[in-house]
Design a protein around this nucleic acid. Structure first.
Length: 546
RNA sequence: GGCCCGUUAGUCAAGUGGCCAAGACGUCGCCCUCUCACGGCGAAGGCAGGGGUUCGACUCCCCUACGGGUCACCA
């Protein structure tokens, strides 16, 4: 077989040689230890939590080592390409704080190692593929889909491992005449890698996260160029990561199964292998079993879910970081105000087993993150969320910014800030009673209290309320009202002899709270009244007295 | 089914042969307290099972079970 001749009749239009290409991709000039990573999605425009898990890892690894993090678009499958897909990916990640140094941008490329869209790299792949043909490492296969299906059926019925290998690799040793005959018919063909491997050969491979793993050599002649001349993922991965100088390939552990093939490819192409970091998967509990989180079945898999629910970006980052590096939480506890960039990210602290996404934990993290924000930050982020999701609330917020800030300032700052907001979508509920337009009475005073007593207490309050009093004066007044109406002003005394009183100062406070806020629970009542203003306070009290 | 990965409390996990197996979330209780939230204290709850190796195994080896992944001209 004249391999040079075969290469020429298969890909006559390819005149470039690997050396020509190599010359266009000089080695990167980076400091020792700098890591070059990439995020390489299909342009479906859809990102799920697992993508973010990987993207964060890529980003941190590159940026904590003085390296480069770039975006490559794997658009070799037309079915996975949607309009604006790239823009959506860049925007979504940008909102989550993941910024690229290099690679595909919305309307082109940024960087010297492009093109960064695989669809624009056909000539490059074909150049290397042609070289493999010359070296006898690749060959054309003219099997139709039906023929492949029938091979598979035959294998299944005989309980053999499915695949194009050994005796099933029917075109592997085809003669030049057979090939030429097919070409003369204009029959479509794929290019397959000629595997010299055997499943009898086992070897060890070192993964940066998993550690030493056992691999079995690949003996399948996988497709490297599809019939349209576009590469499969495997071939594109080898060529691109080589040319673009990727030092660390971070990908989902489901790629572990094709790793043996990738090892072969790098060797056959004469490329130095990058380091591999196969990450554990983000799982979800389904009928008592853990399973890979699914973008089709699980709404919380989509990144847009967190955005629309109103989780702060910082909270999602923070939570994901706790999953990514097991010592992150400890570090955060010791450095509550440090920037996430100061954390020493390492693959050594990455879990080898899949972890369940825990919304309870996310909520807790989010409450902590929000509790550390200023009222102004909370206002801005809530408003931004409301503008997208609740226009009415947004206009309420905008109607009086200072008023909103005062509300959001309650219990904020200091050593023990309130931690009651986890989502921007919850803020409306927390704030509603401060606005006449949103106010509604959710709770009422329990029936066990005598209506006359309630009215007496409220009337008493109405007559004595002084909006200028400070907090202790205010509370002393509440106690005085309690006492003069037969309610115990002192909780300890009340608990010792509850039968002596109609109730306690706690009950009196509750009457006031329900009258003023319409709820059993609220932040500090004095502060609430200060913000509401005397007119609203007294008006609402009057409503109850009737 | 073949191959590969994994298995410490409900969840996330520390642990790398040697004190009664950290911590966080969640749950429950108590305290603080005018309610809620915060905060403090405490409780319940775990090394999948079986063999080895060893003076000694959560840690090393083997087997089993269970879970996950992958076996495309998709990535």
């Amino acid at each position: 077989m004249d391999n040079n001749f075969l290469a020429d009749i298969l890909y006559p239009n390819i005149k470039t040689l690997p050396a020509d290409i190599e010359a266009r991709y000089p080695a990167r000039n980076l400091q020792e230890g700098a890591k070059v990573t990439r995020f390489a999605p299909s342009p479906t425009g859809f990102l799920h939590i697992g993508n973010l898990y990987g993207a964060f890892t890529d980003e941190r690894l590159a940026h904590t080592s003085g390296g480069v993090f770039y975006l490559r678009i794997e658009d070799t499958d037309a079915k996975r390409t949607v309009p604006n897909g790239i823009a959506i990916i860049i925007e979504t990640l940008g909102k989550l704080g993941v910024k690229f140094d290099e690679g595909a941008v919305i309307d082109g490329d940024n960087g010297a190692y492009g093109p960064y869209r695989q669809s624009e790299r056909a000539e490059i792949y074909q150049t290397y593929a042609k070289q493999l043909i010359r070296e006898g490492k690749a060959y054309p296969c003219f099997c139709t889909e039906e023929e492949l299906a029938s091979i598979r059926e035959q294998q299944e019925s005989q309980k053999l491992t499915p695949g194009y290998y050994g005796e099933f690799a029917v075109w592997r040793d085809a003669s030049l005449e057979q090939i030429q005959a097919k070409l003369a018919e204009n029959a479509p063909f794929v290019l397959r890698f000629r595997s010299e491997g055997s499943i009898a050969n086992k070897m060890k491979f070192r993964d940066e996260i998993k550690g030493e793993i056992d691999v079995t050599e690949n003996d399948v002649d996988h497709v490297i160029l599809k019939s349209d001349g576009i590469p499969t993922y495997h071939f594109a991965h080898a060529v691109d990561d080589h040319l673009m100088g990727t030092t660390h390939v971070i990908r989902d552990e489901s790629w572990l199964s094709t790793l043996p093939f990738h090892i072969q490819l790098f060797k056959a192409l004469g490329f130095k292998m990058p380091k591999y970091c196969h990450t554990a998967q983000v799982l979800k509990l389904d009928n008592g079993n853990k399973r890979k989180i699914s973008k089709r079945k699980d709404p919380e898999a989509a990144l847009t879910y967190y955005h629309s629910q109103g989780y702060p970006v910082a909270a999602v980052r923070e939570y994901l970081m706790t999953l990514l590096n097991s010592n992150f939480e400890e570090w955060r506890l010791a450095n509550p105000d440090a920037a996430i960039e100061d954390f020493k990210f390492t693959t050594k602290k990455m879990s080898v087993s899949g972890s369940l996404f825990d919304l309870d934990k996310l909520n807790d993290v989010s409450k902590n993150v929000i509790s550390r924000m200023t009222a102004n930050e909370v206002y801005d982020l809530t408003l931004a969320w409301a503008k997208e999701n609740d226009a009415d609330f947004a206009s309420v917020l905008e109607s009086d910014k200072d008023y909103a800030i005062r509300i959001l300032s309650i219990g904020r700052g200091g050593k023990k800030p309130r931690k009651d907001i986890a989502l921007w979508s919850e803020v409306k509920g927390y704030m509603s009673f401060f606005y006449d337009a949103l106010f509604n009475r959710e709770d009422s005073i329990p029936d066990k209290f005598n209506k006359e007593d309630i009215c007496a207490v409220l009337a008493n309050f109405k007559d004595t309320y002084n909006a200028n009093a400070d907090q202790s004066e205010w509370f002393n007044n509440v106690k005085a009202i309690a006492e003069s109406n037969g309610f115990c002003p002192d909780m300890k005394a009340y608990k010792a002899n509850p039968e002596l009183y109609k109730g306690s100062v706690a009950d009196v406070s509750m009457f006031l709270r329900i009258a003023v806020t319409g709820r059993m629970n609220s932040p500090d009542l004095y502060e609430v009244m200060q913000i509401l203003g005397a007119e609203r306070v007294l008006g609402r009290v009057a409503e109850i007295i009737g």
